[in-house]
Design a protein around this nucleic acid. Structure first.
Length: 268
DNA sequence: CGCATTCCCTGGGTGC
DNA sequence: TGCACCCAGGGAATGC
């Protein structure tokens, strides 16, 4: 399940592999993957790939005049071969590169989406700040939280104030800040908000440095595995001892998501 | 408007 | 071995 660090790794991998290329042709095997696809092909074909960026969990491939925006959701991934024919039933879009290679988009559950836009800022206007944006300060976060009534977990997953966190890193941020994910964000103290702010920045930057996490069914682009799963302190550690106090980690459900907590370290 | 819930989708796991 | 059922989850759509 790619979150910000995994998407960043995919973007860097794509940049290393297809910089300077363009797409000669596109096969859309599963039209529902693409939003507004009437102009999709004409805006994608024969346009040089000029930039490789990320915004939240979205991949932004800068083409001549427009941007190809891709969200991998749960199991979306890319791989390259030399066959333009559909490799298997889970490949939904195949991009023929001008050097003969083919970039395939595979997504078992068809949750991923891609679209072409000429106004990325408008398309992604629902997203909050990046974790490394200079405007993402403790004061900004405290101000955004003080009037909200939702839980810490739901807030961190919402993308609206700070974007890029998914289920894995939300659990890690809550644990490392020693805060219960069901805590109401409107009641957090300045010191608690400081801890959340600090841990968001630390967890995401550490995970990017290790190439993201590879857990469950997800491995990164082109079979490159991240290593951050080895650094996870609570996520996927049900019934194992807390690294801080030794109590057993519990798995529960918060905001309709599987959630791992040390109930001794993370008080409501 | 703000927050909560439902839905999409498939393979893997479980129970009988 | 086969079959029915449930679970995983990001974000859009829907509900209250």
């Amino acid at each position: 399940m790619p979150e910000l660090p995994e998407v960043e790794t995919v973007v860097r991998t794509l940049e290393a592999l297809i910089t300077g290329c363009s797409f000669n042709d596109v096969h859309i095997h599963t039209p529902s993957i693409i939003n507004h696809n009437e102009s999709f092909v004409s805006l994608v074909i024969n346009r040089p790939l000029q930039s490789f960026k990320r915004r939240g969990k979205y991949i932004l491939l800068g083409l001549d005049e427009s941007t190809l925006v891709i969200h991998l959701r749960m199991e979306g991934r890319f791989f390259i071969n030399h066959e333009f024919s559909r490799p298997n039933k889970h490949v939904h879009v195949s991009f023929k590169l001008n050097d003969g290679r083919v970039l395939h988009y595979q997504d078992t559950r068809k949750f991923g989406r891609m679209l072409i836009t000429q106004d990325v800022n408008h398309t992604l206007s629902h997203l909050g700040l990046e974790f490394d944006d200079p405007h993402f300060t403790v004061e900004y976060l405290f101000g955004a939280l003080k009037n909200k009534k939702t839980t810490l977990k739901a807030f961190l997953l919402s993308q609206s104030i700070i974007c890029g966190l998914g289920n894995i890193y939300t659990d890690e941020v809550c644990f490392r800040a020693r805060l219960h994910p069901e805590k109401n964000v409107g009641t957090l103290t300045m010191n608690e908000v400081k801890a959340i702010h600090r841990e968001i920045k630390l967890v995401l930057s550490e995970a990017i440095a290790l190439g993201g996490s590879s857990i469950r069914t997800y491995t990164n682009a082109m079979g490159i595995d991240g290593l951050f799963q080895l650094q996870l302190q609570v996520h996927m550690r049900a019934k194992q001892p807390c690294i801080a106090c030794g109590h057993l980690i519990e798995k529960t459900s918060v905001a309709n998501r599987g959630t791992y907590i040390c109930k001794h370290c993370q008080k409501r």
